[in-house]
Design a binder for these strands. Structure first.
Length: 283
DNA sequence: ACCTGACCTCGTCT
DNA sequence: AAGACGAGGTCAG
């Protein structure tokens, strides 16, 4: 299948509205999205990147999607979700933006996360004009590392502001090295991420899945627990609603055993399906 | 080892 | 109209 054919099968609306990205805006027929210091424009079957950077395959066209689907469809519920949203895809995000996004996501909701990130871009990001519309790139790590906590707090982040500044310092000083984490295995990379203040199991799994090439990462949030309780009572043992360190790891192990090495894709389909079923709002 | 509550903020509910 | 509640979690005690 050619890249153009692959792109043709992608359902951008569903993929963007599936909780993995927050800084996307639809104007007319076009989607505009901030990914680090890039502005991506999706116009039906063509993709422009306003950037000097080489392509990084945001749409993961290099994934063997046929093979992934084949693997996912062994599970009846995921099979059903894939049939409902056949064009749903995972994106390959800018790691720093992804880390900050999910740091901000804790104990929050999609609308709030979007608003916080938007405010951060407006205040600390570089302005670009595309198609006559003003956009702000995601801030550089240095910009948020230098910012005062109270300036960050003005963007509405609340108690997360301190963690955002702290994490930005670590990234700026290369104490957190994303290229290195991409090369490491799932457990080592997760261990490193969790050393960062404000990053626990769920947030770490989001960062690993959405930006660090760990397709076995399966973020276990409130919604995923509901899904597991609803469709998989016999399969998994859901002990409590608030997962402890141990129960999170144990459940994550069981889940990956069941769904396989593309568990993260399964999670995305299940999450999308259940949120739509409950008519939850997206961007 | 496990569990509980606090935490910024904001939209929604009462 | 003002106060309570909860939201895609984390961490300390």
């Amino acid at each position: 299948m050619s890249d153009l054919e692959k792109i043709f099968h992608i359902d951008l609306d569903s993929s963007i509205n599936s909780g993995q990205v927050f800084l996307w805006k639809k104007i007319g027929p076009k989607w505009y999205g901030i990914n680090g210091d890039n502005i991506l424009i999706f116009d039906k079957n063509t993709i422009h990147q306003k950037s000097d950077k080489p392509s990084f395959d945001f749409l993961r066209l290099n994934d063997d999607f046929i093979k992934i689907l084949q693997s996912l469809k062994k599970d009846r519920i995921v099979h059903n979700a894939v049939n409902l949203y056949p064009g749903l895809r995972l994106f390959r995000q800018d790691p720093y933006q992804c880390l900050i996004s999910f740091l901000v996501s804790s104990n929050s909701n999609i609308q709030k996360i979007q608003s916080c990130l938007h405010n951060l871009c407006n205040k600390f990001g570089e302005k670009k004009i595309v198609d006559g519309v003003d956009f702000f790139l995601f801030p550089e790590p240095d910009a948020l590392a230098k910012a005062s906590v109270s300036e960050i707090q003005k963007c509405g982040l609340g108690y997360r502001s301190k963690s955002v500044k702290n994490a930005s310092v670590l990234v700026k000083n290369e104490e957190v090295d994303f290229e290195f984490l991409k090369e490491e295995d799932y457990f080592s990379a997760k261990k490193r991420l969790k050393e960062i203040s404000g990053i626990g199991n769920k947030v770490a799994d989001c960062i690993l899945l959405f930006s660090l090439e760990k397709l076995e990462a399966f973020p276990l949030d409130r919604w995923m627990l509901r899904v597991l309780e609803k469709y998989y009572v016999k399969k998994f043992h859901i002990s409590t609603k608030t997962l402890t360190e141990k129960t999170y790891q144990s459940l994550h192990n069981d889940v990956v055993d069941h769904f396989g090495c593309y568990a993260g894709y399964a999670q995305q389909f299940l999450f999308k399906m259940e949120r739509e079923l409950n008519e939850k709002k997206w961007l």
